[in-house]
């Protein structure tokens, strides 16, 4: 989607592609210029911006302690331009009504729990859960996250906030063995 099709040529030249991760649905590709306001961009693609937290770029979650995650997740001001936010080609924008989401993961009767921003990748949460459960690489490689009560195993490139099954800013996963193919 190009939201500036009718803009002057100098503005079109500065356009770049961004990935927008909406609440409960698949990633969208959007083209916009550095001067575009975040609110302008989101509204142009039909997103509700009222009461929504918008996170840009990927927070370096590995650096945060459990207590810090909620403090460090800073939603951005929608009146800021993409350029001012430092967004560039293939930057990520996540939108969600929850600023953080409590994730519980069950494995072999053990539970680990932590708050993550909606922008957290499933691959990152999977690695975190395995580490917290002290599962070594060899035994853990074939374990994947499955949303509790479903057969749904989100792809590693999906962001937490994109899952449609989050209620009350909480979600529960089971860490399960991948379905092995046998001949």
């Amino acid at each position: 989607m190009n939201i500036h099709e009718k803009e002057p040529e100098d503005r079109i030249e500065q356009e770049f592609e961004l990935f927008v991760h909406p609440e409960g649905s698949a990633t969208k590709v959007v083209k916009a210029g550095k001067g575009t306001l975040l609110k302008e961009l989101l509204e142009a693609i039909g997103f509700q911006t009222e009461g929504v937290f918008v996170l840009v770029n990927d927070p370096p979650m590995e650096l945060y302690s459990e207590e810090e995650i909620e403090i460090q997740v800073e939603a951005v001001d929608l009146g800021t331009s993409l350029g001012e936010l430092g967004l560039k080609e293939h930057s990520h924008i996540s939108c969600h009504t929850c600023k953080v989401i409590t994730v519980a993961v069950f494995y072999n009767g053990e539970e680990v729990k932590k708050k993550f921003p909606p922008s957290a990748l499933i691959s990152f949460i999977t690695r975190w859960a395995k580490k917290r459960l002290k599962l070594d690489d060899a035994s853990a490689e074939k374990l994947v996250l499955q949303i509790a009560g479903t057969n749904e195993r989100p792809r590693p490139d999906v962001r937490l906030g994109q899952l449609g099954t989050i209620q009350g800013c909480k979600i529960v996963f089971n860490l399960v063995a991948a379905e092995l193919i046998q001949g």
């Binding site: 990935f19 991760h21 698949a26 969208k28 590709v29 792809r155």
Partner: peptide, 11 residues
């Protein structure tokens, strides 16, 4: 192929 999941993998 023009949508987010494919383009992210491409990027």
């Amino acid at each position: 192929l023009a949508d987010g999941p494919f383009k992210m993998g491409e990027a």
